[in-house]
Computed example of a mutant assay.
Amino acid sequence: MQPPYQPPIPYGLTPAPSASNIVMIIFGVLALGLIVEAVRDWRRRGQPLMLVLVVAAVVTNLDEGIADHLGFVWYSDIDQDVWYRSFVPMPLWMVPAYIVFFAGLTTVVMRSIDARVTRKSFVLTAVVCWAVNLAIEVPLMSTGVYTYYGDNQPFSVNGFPLYWLVLNATGPLIAAAVLCRFRAFFTGARLLLVIPLLPMCYAASLGAIGFPIFNLLHSAAPQWAVEVGALITILLGLSVWWFVMELAARDGRFNAYYAPAGSQAQAVEVEPRTHAAA
């Protein structure tokens, strides 16, 4: 019986000089801009949904250690401020980074759904979200603030495994779809339920679509099998995006079933049964 695959953890990973400070400043400025927009959105809409999403995004960071343990990710604790430790040391700059990505992405998808975009526009939104994720992670890989380690990481671009594009983005997608569909429920004190909703959606998506690659990464499986596992994870993630698109897009196949609770959208018409005369 072969033992599970466990590559050596890169404890000695050292960031480039001042790298963590620069990353903190960049994400801090972006997070501050998003918080300012959240306050403006509160004034426009009359409820602080975006601000609650900011808090939910910070709480979602508590999922990160589990995801990193499963996906062989390590954050350097050398020359970096760490705000907590679980399976990995969690650098302080992850707080604004999570605000930018998780609160920001959830807001972008919600606004796309609210605007009743077409499927074509929804696909464009998805591509932009993945491109932004790629534009963030690939440059960060060269700074040494964190790394994806192990010899069997599949589909890597400059050290970034591409299957993480769907793993990172699917949780906010699901949360956005739920919030738009049940917006009439998330009002008043119930708005606080958004705080556990976002980390639960992220954790659920990690398990639901990440199990093929995570199982194979930790096994003694050959590299081709790990690549297949990553491909299955990507396809599972894309299937979730497809389903939400068909539900929420204006021309989606299942849009009639998605009208937000309390709206005046036309309900699905069911042909009444006819009974033969006695």
Rank of each mutant, 00 (worst) to 15 (best):
G237Y: 00
P222K: 05
W224P: 00
P161E: 07
A131K: 00
L165V: 11
L124R: 14
M110T: 05
W74K: 03
S205C: 14
P196V: 00
V194D: 05
V39H: 10
G46S: 03
A19P: 02
A31M: 09
T187W: 00
V178M: 11
S263V: 03
R85G: 02
S86K: 01
V244G: 07
P272H: 07
G237W: 02
G12Y: 11
L192Q: 02
S205M: 15
W224R: 10
L206H: 09
G150L: 07
L13I: 07
T107Y: 13
V58M: 15
A177C: 09
M200I: 14
A19I: 06
A276G: 08
A248R: 14
G252K: 12
T187L: 14
Y163N: 05
V240M: 08
A259I: 01
Y149D: 01
V54Y: 03
S219T: 03
F101Q: 13
P260S: 08
A176H: 00
S263A: 02
G262I: 04
P10W: 00
L51N: 04
S20E: 11
Y146W: 15
Y11E: 12
W224A: 10
V55Y: 02
L162Y: 04
W241G: 04
A31P: 08
L179G: 09
A277R: 12
E64Y: 02
C201W: 02
L192S: 04
P91T: 00
A175M: 04
T147C: 09
W130R: 11
F27I: 01
N21R: 03
V270Y: 11
V100K: 07
A189C: 02
P4T: 03
V108T: 11
A276M: 11
A169D: 15
P212L: 12
E227V: 04
V54D: 02
A115G: 10
A220S: 15
V157N: 11
Y11L: 15
I195V: 14
L162P: 08
G144L: 06
R181V: 00
D251L: 07
L236F: 02
